[in-house]
C-alpha cells in the first residue's frame, strides 16, 4: 500500500472518529472536569455573584453532614437488599424461563415487563399500591385480620428505605433474570450429563454444578448492584424525596436538594465529584478483585 493511500486512510479514520469524539468530550468529559473544578468554589447559583474559592471546604461540609452518612447507610441497605432480595429472585426467575414449563413465554413477558416502563411511572404505581388509606396493601393487611397495623411504610423513618428497596427489586429483578438466564444457557448440556452420571440431583446439581459455572454472572450482578446502588436516584426522588426527614436520603437526592433547594451549588458539585470517584473506584476495584480471583484459581 502506498504512503499516500495510507495517509488518506488515516485521515478518513480520523474524520470518522471526530463526531463521536467531539460529542463525548464536549457533553460528557468537559462537564465532568467542571464538576471537579467547581467543587472547590462556593456559589449560590446566581451568575452575577462571584465564585468564591473555598478549597476543600465543600468536602469538609460534605463529609461532616449527618445526611451524608444517612445516605451512605442507605446505599449499603440498597446493596444488601440486592444480594438478599434481587439475587435469589432473579436467579429463580432465570431458571423458570430456562425450564420447560408450560406458559413460560407468558411468565417471561411478565417478569421482564418492568424494564420497559418509565421509572417515574413505576414509582407512582407503587406509591398508590402502598397508599396507607385504603390502598391495596392496606386492604390486604386488613383483610388478613391485622387491624391496627401501621402500613404507612413510605411515611416511616424506619421503613421508608426498605419499602423503596422492594420497589427497586420489583423493577430490576427482570433485568438481572436475563443475566442469569444468559449464564444458564452458556452451561453446556454435557456438564449436567456428567453430573447426572455422578449421581448429582436437584439441589446438589444446583450447588455443585450450576452455581460454580455461573460465577461470571454473579460477578456481573454484583458489579451492577454496587454501582447501581451508589448512583440510585429516581426511585427515591419520586416516592419519598429523601424523607421523611432525611431518612431515605441517597447521594443523588442530596446532590439535587443542595443545588435546587438550598442554593448550595458548591456542596452539590462536591457530591458530584464524590459520586464520580466512588462509582469509578467501585467498578475498578470489583473488576480487579474478580480478575485476581480468577488468576488465583488458575494457579491452583
Amino acid at each position: 500500500m502506498s504512503g499516500v493511500m495510507s495517509r488518506k486512510k488515516k485521515a478518513e479514520a480520523l474524520l470518522l472518529s471526530l463526531p463521536a469524539f467531539l460529542l463525548y468530550s464536549f457533553i460528557f468529559i468537559y462537564p465532568m472536569i467542571s464538576v471537579f473544578r467547581l467543587s472547590l468554589f462556593k456559589w449560590n447559583g446566581i451568575p452575577n455573584s462571584p465564585l468564591e474559592f473555598v478549597g476543600m471546604k465543600n468536602y469538609v461540609a460534605l463529609f461532616t453532614d449527618r445526611r451524608f452518612f444517612t445516605a451512605l447507610t442507605n446505599v449499603g441497605i440498597f446493596i444488601l437488599s440486592g444480594c438478599i432480595l434481587i439475587l435469589p429472585v432473579a436467579f429463580f426467575l432465570a431458571t423458570v424461563i430456562q425450564s420447560k414449563l408450560k406458559g413460560k413465554r407468558l411468565l417471561k413477558t411478565s417478569y421482564f415487563m418492568p424494564q420497559v416502563i418509565s421509572r417515574t411511572a413505576i414509582a407512582l404505581m407503587w406509591y398508590f399500591l402502598l397508599y396507607p388509606e385504603g390502598g391495596p396493601l392496606a386492604t390486604l393487611v386488613e383483610s388478613l385480620g391485622f387491624t391496627g397495623v401501621d402500613v404507612n411504610f413510605l411515611g416511616s423513618q424506619t421503613y421508608a428505605i426498605y419499602a423503596i428497596t422492594v420497589i427497586n427489586a420489583w423493577t430490576y429483578a427482570g433485568f438481572n433474570m436475563l443475566i442469569f438466564s444468559a449464564g444458564l444457557t452458556a452451561v453446556p448440556e454435557d456438564v449436567y450429563e456428567a453430573a447426572r452420571v455422578d449421581g448429582a440431583q436437584g439441589w446438589q446439581k444446583l450447588r455443585y454444578v450450576t452455581i460454580p459455572m455461573l460465577k461470571s454472572s454473579f460477578q456481573i450482578f454484583l458489579l451492577n448492584c454496587v454501582v447501581g446502588s451508589i448512583t440510585t436516584f429516581e426511585m427515591v426522588y419520586v416516592t419519598t424525596g429523601g424523607g421523611p426527614g432525611s431518612a431515605s436520603e441517597v447521594f443523588g437526592t442530596l446532590l439535587y436538594k443542595n443545588a435546587f433547594t438550598y442554593n448550595n451549588y458548591g456542596y452539590s458539585n462536591a457530591m458530584g465529584s464524590f459520586l464520580i470517584v466512588a462509582s469509578f473506584l467501585a467498578s475498578v476495584l470489583l473488576t480487579g478483585l474478580f480478575s485476581r480471583g480468577e488468576k488465583k484459581e488458575a494457579a491452583v
Binding site: 460528557f28 468529559i29 465532568m32 454501582v227 448512583t231 446532590l255 452539590s268 458530584g272 469509578f280
Partner: peptide
C-alpha cells in the same frame, strides 16, 4: 480507554455544569 471511562461514571453527577 477514554470512551470507556464514561461507563463507570453516573452522568447526573455532572448535572450542574450541564
Amino acid at each position: 480507554m477514554y470512551y470507556l471511562l464514561g461507563l463507570m461514571i453516573p452522568p447526573y453527577a455532572m448535572l450542574i455544569p450541564v
